[in-house]
Every structure is written in C-alpha cells, then in structure tokens.
Simulated assay, not measured.
Amino acid sequence: MDQKEYLKRYMRYLKLECGYSANTQAAYQHDLLFLFHFLEDQGKTVTEVKLADLETFAAGLHDQGIGPRSQGRILSGVRSFYRFLLLEGDVKDDPTELLPWPTIGEHLPEYLTTEEVDQLEASIDLSKWEGQRNKAIIETLFSCGLRVSELVNLKISDIYFDEKFIRVLGKGNKERLVPISDEAIKQVNLWFVDRRQMKIKEGEEDYVFLNRRGHHLTRTMILIMIKRQAVAAGITKTISPHTLRHSFATALLKGGADLRAIQMLLGHERLETTEIYTHMEVSDLRREILEHFPRNIKKKGKM
C-alpha cells in the first residue's frame, strides 16, 4: 500500500470516526505531508519508520526554520496518524511513543480570578437593555467553560434547568453535557425576562442570546462586549471570551478537581491540551513562594 492510500484511509477515519470538519482534516493532511516528503527522500514507507527516523525528521523541522509550536503541532499530527495505523493493525508498535517534544517557551494563557469575574459583572450597567444579557453571557462562559462558538450556538432546548446541565455541541460536532451553576441559571432566567419582550426573527427563536434585532450573536460581538466591559471594570489584563474559559478551568484545578474531569468538561480530545492548566498552577505556586516564603521575605527586606 502506498502513502496516498494510507493518507486516504486516515482522512476517512478523521471524517467518519472523529467527526472532524473539512478545515481540520485539511490541517492534518497538510502537516502529514511534511512526514511523507521526508520519507520519500529517505526511501522509506510509513510502516518502516522507527523512532530514530522520527528524531531525524523532527530535527529537520527545526532546520527548516519551523517554530517550536508549529513543530509540536506537526508531531502531534504524526502521533495521531501512527495511533491510527496501530489501531488498524498496519504497524505493531507506535514509533512516536518515545519521541521527545520540542521545547516551547512558557506562554500561559491569561485568566481571571473569581473576584475579577465578579468585578467584571459588577461593572455592567443593568439599566441598559443589553445589560442583563451581557451579565448572563459572562456568567455562563465562566461557570460552564464554553468556547465562544459554543455559546453563540447555545439553544434554549439545550438547557436542562431542573437537572442543572446544558448540552454543548463542540468541535467535530461532538456533544457533551456540562453542569451549569445556580448563579448562571439565575442570570439566564433574568435575561429571559427581557428576552420575552423582544421581537425575534423567524428561525432564531431557540437561540439563548440575541442582539437587539432578534438575531443570535456572533463571536465578534461577544469579543467586543467583553473587551469593553474589562475597560469599564478597570481590569488591565488583555482578555477575551476564551479568558473566561481559562478562568473556569483554572478555578476547578485550584479547587482540587481531577485533570481528566476538567478535560471532559472542556471537551478536549487530548489530555495534553488540558495539562497547560497544571503549568498555570505551578506558575502561581512559584509566585506565591517568591512573595510569601519566609526566607524570600527576609532576602527582600535586606535589599
């Protein structure tokens, strides 16, 4: 079987088994072509690859001037491909299992503390028609850890108020159930009081969050709203809707939640994606030690 046939089967797997979008499939294919071109130069097939070959391949990515993050993305795609081949019985062992990952500089996402989220919500002018809607949006993003794309597509029929769950359609059209807090339920119900007074466009009746013309919101609208609200709240951090998702995950980790539980709530396919929050926790601990550990305090006093 030649490489084109392996690639064709893998693309079919990503589409039918994983439910990935056409754009995601294209991204995986693009990254795999780096490997295929390398193997052609080496005169090897995908099933003959050993760890040493992949180490040479990874070093070649660096030599081509490809940055660490892009290297990591490409190698992640290669790892996914070989797990597929292992699953299909095309290879007996996964050659990527011990492949070292490129070193990526520590770039941790910004997040808000619970107090800062309260500060953000407190700055909302509830006398404006959109005030309660915006408060419900911020609370739902923070309490449920939703992607902004998931929030704009949230339907009334997706909210189970009595059971305190919402049904979320995430990446790859994968559904997951996420608990919704009492506070978020309260704010959404208060928004529904205003929403009932609106003239809603045909076909938009089931969307939770609407603009003044009765259409469901866009991601850009929510991004602009949150940035403006951060300025009004005096928050100097650079934030976006995704910041509230990070804040949700960080708050859970600080509260002692299991990393795999956080992975399920966020809808991450790979645990490695969720593990960034452990790095955030370590970063916070380091800061606390530097600021509050007695010996560090003494040293600061002598300076």
Rank of each mutant, 00 (worst) to 15 (best):
V178D: 10
L85D: 05
I66P: 05
S127H: 10
Q187F: 01
Q119T: 15
L108V: 06
E291P: 05
D284I: 03
L39D: 03
Y111V: 06
D53W: 01
E175V: 08
K227F: 02
L253W: 15
F293C: 07
I74R: 04
E272V: 15
A27C: 08
G256I: 06
D41Q: 12
T140P: 08
T47D: 06
E97A: 06
I235M: 06
Q197I: 04
T24S: 11
L169K: 14
T220N: 15
L141W: 04
E163G: 12
I159L: 10
D93Q: 15
T278W: 11
R245A: 01
R73C: 09
R147C: 05
P294S: 04
I104K: 14
G170E: 00
T103Q: 15
L120P: 04
M303W: 04
L210W: 00
E150G: 05
L177Q: 11
W129S: 15
D2C: 14
S143R: 01
I166F: 02
Q119A: 12
K299V: 10
G60C: 13
M11I: 15
Q29H: 04
I185Y: 03
H37T: 13
D93V: 08
N23C: 05
L86V: 11
F293S: 02
I180M: 09
R79C: 13
M280Y: 05
E139W: 01
F248Q: 09
D125R: 01
C144S: 10
I104F: 00
R245S: 08
W129M: 14
I159M: 10
E272G: 11
L217K: 10
N189F: 00
E121G: 15
L265A: 04
F248T: 11
T24A: 00
R69C: 13
K155E: 07
R295P: 00
S80I: 11
R73Q: 07
R270S: 11
G203K: 02
D94S: 07
G214R: 13
S143A: 14
Q229M: 03
K135Q: 15
F161R: 14
D206F: 04
N134A: 12
F192Q: 06
K254Y: 08
K302N: 00
E115G: 13
H107R: 14
T113M: 03
D63T: 13
Q64G: 03
G256V: 02
L223M: 03
T24C: 08
V208R: 02
G267W: 00
T220Q: 15
A184E: 02
K186G: 15
Q29Y: 04
K174F: 03
Y207P: 02
R147M: 07
G301N: 06
D206W: 10
H215Y: 14
R195S: 02
M225S: 15
L244H: 01
E5C: 00
I262M: 09
V91S: 09
F38A: 05
R167Y: 12
F36E: 01
T45M: 13
R212D: 14
I224H: 15
A251R: 14
V49C: 02
K299M: 08
H279W: 01
L39G: 06
G19Y: 00
L169T: 07
P100E: 07
E17Q: 13
M264R: 14
V208E: 11
T238Y: 13
L190F: 01
E272R: 13
V78K: 06
R195N: 06
M11H: 05
S143P: 04
K155W: 04
V78A: 09
D53A: 09
K237N: 00
L61K: 03
R83G: 08
P109M: 04
R133V: 08
A58R: 09
L285G: 00
G267F: 05
Y82P: 08
L87A: 12
